[in-house]
């Protein structure tokens, strides 16, 4: 069989790291969804040419260090308060692209009030909500989105609704608020889903810049160290357990 040697030339280049990503190696655990989501946001920022317009608001949680990985202006918010920080940044710079990047603890536990009210005010920003049903940075505690029966450091015998209440489906809440124009659940555990997720990010940013109201993009994600699985197992477990509870797809798209 003839030997086909692909020359690594510029013409043959199909995919490479976007310059919007910094050279810092990400601190995330191997296989963590955060890294993939960061990359997609960086790629969309590059493609839309808005690196000089983007103002990101990072949370407290594993992704607090998002500011080390995307070379844009970042404001790191107190735990749960990214939506408030973003509201001010957006109101004061209406022509800039303001977005928050938050985990489930940040957005759906301590930041519930801020998250609901930024949606209710219909701020034209994008909210990226990474739902991996656990507190990663602090070492695997229960989150508002932890599934029933799921074991974590603070529900070691499995989440019991009598003790810990029920998994909280934020997207189904915020889609009812008139100020919200786009609500979708995405994931990055397969190449096909990665491509869809990237389109959703693009749509959210376009909505934000067009002043159409708030775009809420939930990423159903994995935390393989918190779930105590390998990354590949975590992706599989997510498909079988998380996605039925948090079905993917657009919930609202005006």
């Amino acid at each position: 069989m003839a030997e086909y040697i692909v020359e690594k030339t510029k013409e043959n280049l199909v995919y490479s790291k976007t310059p919007v990503l910094t050279d810092n190696v990400m601190h995330y655990c191997p296989g963590c969804s955060h890294g993939t989501i960061h990359k997609l946001i960086a790629e969309v920022i590059e493609e839309m040419g808005v690196q000089d317009k983007a103002i990101g608001v990072s949370p407290v949680g594993c992704s607090v260090f998002a500011y080390n990985y995307l070379n844009i202006d970042w404001v790191q918010a107190a735990h749960g308060r990214a939506a408030a920080v973003a509201t001010a940044a957006h109101r004061l710079y209406p022509d800039k692209l303001v977005f928050t990047y938050q985990g489930d603890g940040d957005l759906a536990a301590i930041g519930t009030a801020e998250s609901i009210h930024v949606c209710n005010r219909g701020e034209s920003i994008a909210v990226f909500y990474i739902n991996n049903a656990i507190y990663g940075m602090t070492g695997g505690q229960m989150a508002p989105t932890t599934l029933l029966g799921m074991k974590t450091a603070t529900c070691p015998y499995g989440r019991d609704p009598q003790l810990h209440g029920y998994p909280y489906k934020v997207a189904d809440f915020v889609c009812q608020l008139p100020g919200v124009c786009y609500v979708t659940r995405q994931s990055v555990h397969t190449p096909a889903n990665v491509r869809k997720a990237k389109k959703a990010i693009r749509k959210a940013f376009e909505n934000a810049l067009a002043g159409k109201g708030l775009s809420f993009v939930e990423f159903v994600a994995t935390c393989n160290s918190g779930w105590k699985m390998t990354p590949v197992q975590a992706n599989k477990w997510m498909e079988e357990n998380m996605l039925p509870a948090y079905p993917l797809g657009d919930i609202k798209n005006e």
Partner: peptide, 12 residues
């Protein structure tokens, strides 16, 4: 595109 650490460059 799925690599969380963007380690892979592709040529075709």
């Amino acid at each position: 595109i799925i690599c969380p650490d963007t380690c892979i460059t592709v040529y075709r």
